[in-house]
Amino acid sequence: MRILIIEDEQKMSSYLHKGLTEASFTVDTSGNGRHGLFLALHEDFDLIVLDVMLPEIDGFEVLRRLREQKQTPVLLLTSQDGVDSKVKGFELGADDYLAKPFAYAEFLARIRSLLRRAPRTTRDFLFVADLEIELVKRRVRRGNVRIELTAQEFALLQLLAERQGEVLTRTFITSQIWDINFDSDTNVVDVAVRRLRAKIDSPFDRKLLHTVRGMGYVIEDKS
């Protein structure tokens, strides 16, 4: 099973990473809220260990944004042991809460308890016509042709494919992929879409990624 630790205290992060790895988990780490949220949204994890006090975006905000799209189990870690802090965490969608300092044995027991309760995802693939997106291994094919994408290109393709047939505005795409709001006149989304289209559409007769003038982009089979 794969676990993401979002913790800015290097000593704590290393300690938890070592313990969970020795317990046979696959562990990824992030040291700030913005990067951690990006990983949480665009990678598949069985559980997320989330510190509340983080740089750039705090843990509560990471949790709020995560719950808009995913229900990955989350264990909050914090030095704030007050009732109000706990209530806020649970109201935002935390599955469990552990105050620092804590005993590692309790931490591991809570991790295992959450994993036993969590439903496992059954969706491994997304399909748009002959375009096949393998989510876990992050592989893309059209027919028998393997398509190599960067991490950002894959995230953009996944976002479009998960909302197949729905026109996504540039503002929405930037908020989901880059987690920031660009000025409306920027062409960063257009450039990213153009690069993705060059890989998944241009070499093929059937076009799937379409521009909706004045609105945004949509991926669908219009043939």
Rank of each mutant, 00 (worst) to 15 (best):
R2P: 07
I6H: 01
E7M: 01
Q10W: 07
Y15H: 08
K18M: 05
G19V: 10
T21H: 01
T26Y: 08
D28E: 12
S30Q: 03
G31T: 06
R34S: 13
H35W: 09
F38Y: 14
F38K: 14
L41H: 02
D46M: 02
I48W: 05
L50H: 00
D51S: 03
I57K: 14
D58H: 12
V62F: 09
R67V: 10
P73H: 05
V74E: 05
L76C: 13
T78G: 06
Q80F: 13
D81T: 06
K86A: 13
K86I: 02
V87W: 04
G89A: 15
G93C: 06
G93Y: 08
K100I: 03
P101T: 05
A105D: 15
A105H: 13
A105W: 10
L108T: 08
S113G: 11
D124M: 08
D124V: 06
F127V: 06
A129N: 11
I133C: 01
I133P: 01
L135G: 09
V140A: 02
V140L: 06
T150C: 00
A155R: 04
L160P: 00
A161E: 06
Q164R: 15
T169D: 08
T174H: 15
T174Y: 11
S175V: 03
Q176V: 03
I177K: 01
N181L: 12
N181A: 11
F182N: 06
S184E: 13
D185V: 09
V193K: 04
R197H: 13
I200R: 04
K207F: 03
K207R: 14
L208S: 04
H210A: 04
T211E: 07
G214C: 06
V218W: 03
I219M: 14
S223R: 07
